[in-house]
Design a protein around this nucleic acid. Structure first.
Lengths: 340, 340
DNA sequence: CACTAAAATCTAAACGTTTACATTTTATAA
DNA sequence: TTATAAAATGTAAACGTTTAGATTTTAGTG
């Protein structure tokens, strides 16, 4: 088949200039009705499709946002993406998705590719919260919104959860059930969620004068396998915990599987609270008590912040904004009152 | 800050032409060592970043694939995307993601946007298998690979699952457990998975001379709520089924919730097999017997097929290819032998 | 040294749109 | 009817890269 029709072809057919066609395509007004009709007819007959690449070159914007997440298969992130996308579509933005698999190196490559492609803005849950590797984005004046994990090295708009608060409530709930020996499966301490949730755990324990034994602190990596292995390891504790607080959803899944494999009776021999609600939480026996947060709203808020930044003059330095969404505890039945 | 440096600036600084700089950037050879070093030094000093948009205009390729799925929060699709992305990255492609939310209208808008943006290829799980609304992709000579759902109106490469085969094995398993009254929660009959899985159910029932009562056939929409409502509705059957086969993961979740809410004892009062394995399946009590398939491999295969198409001359008409990935049954404990 | 062939490098058009400024057309008022 | 202002439309440069074909430089041979 022949080459695709261009705006030039439409102009020729409608007997006008390309500027006039451009005015009609972009609905800018300033074109007489009969002229407009002729142009629209020509577009239809030629089956003209505008070329967004050419437009991007002139306008220096691509109407595309980049989303960088660590793990698409963690149920948390699809919810975030659903929220972002719902808003992005309404604003005529396309969403380019990339997963870093918790690798700073891969993330750097993604960022380089995004800058080259002229991405207008980026929403990121970074693999490395230091964030120095995000320098190319700032060099290119590309606005960034961080979700769930903060970025230390730059001032960027951030959407977080009240991690400490949520963890505090979770551990406090266990304490109110008379648990005194509470273990934590914490996330990487160089991440905001990992660190803050751990702090929430410590705060609750200290507030009630409870000991924090070294062997009760298990260092996970937010992945299911680490939750599994660390929970199994808990069985070798000198002083067995009677309750476990897990810092994220996948580690919770792993932990529950380990409890099952060790024939520890959830809700009886050991109580459990996890951070982040997922479908599975209602299916475990008994259903899990969890810290929940509105994931789609997080995504929508992230896009909203980014959208405002993309509309702004990049040279105007505005104060960074930080939103902290409050999680809440959903009490199901995985916490039994301790009879000690 | 001043405008970003262009290839022109690099050329000036290195005392060469833009063509020579382009040769170095694209590693095309034919440049003397000292010249190459000067150019690389200039790139570094100017912090030059190549402009992929300009390149796309000249080359008429964007190194971007579009992925259109119905529902990002269905755990099936993140796995597919993980598979696609793993391959895409290796081939230097970016992945633009869009969810249609099972809406043909939204899907048409996504397609229009993808065509305008010069997307090089599309992987789609379409909202409407007739597929006529995909016409703009074919008009634009954009290769398409269909995943999980076929496209009737065009010949496109397709990656499917042995839906009928998987459903047949699932239902047969129930029959071998002496179940004779088996209900199905089927997906939309205008979709390949919906229809083929229903056919597999029928084939198994007919093969063993078992009746298929109208009231045992429940029409769902692949979403959790439909699984829930339809399972509840089963309690009003004149002739109560003793087993349920659910045609997808989310409807299985809904169904299990309904059984729980109705206090039907899973694995005792009713047996259950679902299509697609998900984490939840191991957590229900008892854990679910399911039809499983290698989702990441589906994604990788889809990208592979698309990649080959994108490399091909679009005017060369090759035979469409169809791959059918064989699912397998994972027997857990949600099927109790019927004592009838 | 001269000639020729090969290698290296350069020139400038092309890709398709947008838009600033120029030109033409139209409408209105005197 | 003429003049002027406003509206409509046109012209051509710009955006930043790639590359075909031209030109220059270099290497090798007689």
């Amino acid at each position: 088949m022949t080459n695709k029709p261009t705006i030039q072809d439409v102009a020729k057919k409608a007997n006008v200039s390309v500027a006039t066609v451009s005015r009609v395509i972009n609905e800018q007004g300033g074109v007489r009705k009969p002229t407009e009709e002729r142009i629209k007819q020509a577009i239809k007959e030629l089956r003209y499709v505008r070329n967004a690449v050419a437009r991007s070159m002139v306008r220096k914007e691509t109407k595309t946002i980049g989303v960088i997440i660590p793990d698409i298969c963690n149920p948390f992130f699809p919810e975030i993406i659903a929220g972002i996308e719902r808003k992005a579509i309404g604003a005529d933005y396309s969403t380019t998705l990339s997963s870093s698999n918790e690798s700073k190196k891969i993330e750097s490559k993604i960022i380089q590719s995004f800058v080259e492609r002229g991405i207008d803005g980026v929403i990121i849950t970074t693999a490395d919260e230091n964030g120095e590797h995000l320098q190319p984005l700032f060099d290119a004046n590309i606005p960034v919104v961080a979700v769930d994990r903060a970025i230390k090295h730059f001032d960027v708009d951030t959407v977080l959860t009240g991690n400490r608060e949520g963890a505090y409530e979770a551990v406090r709930h266990l304490i109110m059930q008379k648990h005194e020996k509470i273990a934590i499966i914490r996330g990487p301490q160089d991440t905001t969620p990992g660190l803050e949730r751990y702090k929430g755990y410590c705060q609750a324990m200290e507030e009630y004068g409870l000991p924090i034994k070294e062997e009760w602190i298990c260092d996970g990596d937010f992945m299911e396998d680490s939750g599994y292995e660390l929970t199994k390891k808990l069985s070798t504790c000198k002083e067995m915990p009677t309750a476990i607080f897990s810092s994220n959803n996948l580690m919770s899944i792993g932990a529950i599987k380990a409890l099952y494999d060790m024939s520890w009776v959830l809700g009886k021999e050991v109580s459990f609270v996890g951070f982040d609600d997922i479908d599975i939480a209602t299916f475990t026996n008994p259903p899990l008590t969890v810290v929940s947060r509105p994931m789609r709203n997080l995504g929508e808020l992230a896009f909203q912040l980014l959208f405002e930044r993309m509309k702004q003059d990049p040279l105007v330095k505005n104060q960074k904004r930080e939103f902290i969404v409050t999680p809440h505890l959903i009490v199901r039945q995985s916490c039994k009152r301790s009879v000690y």
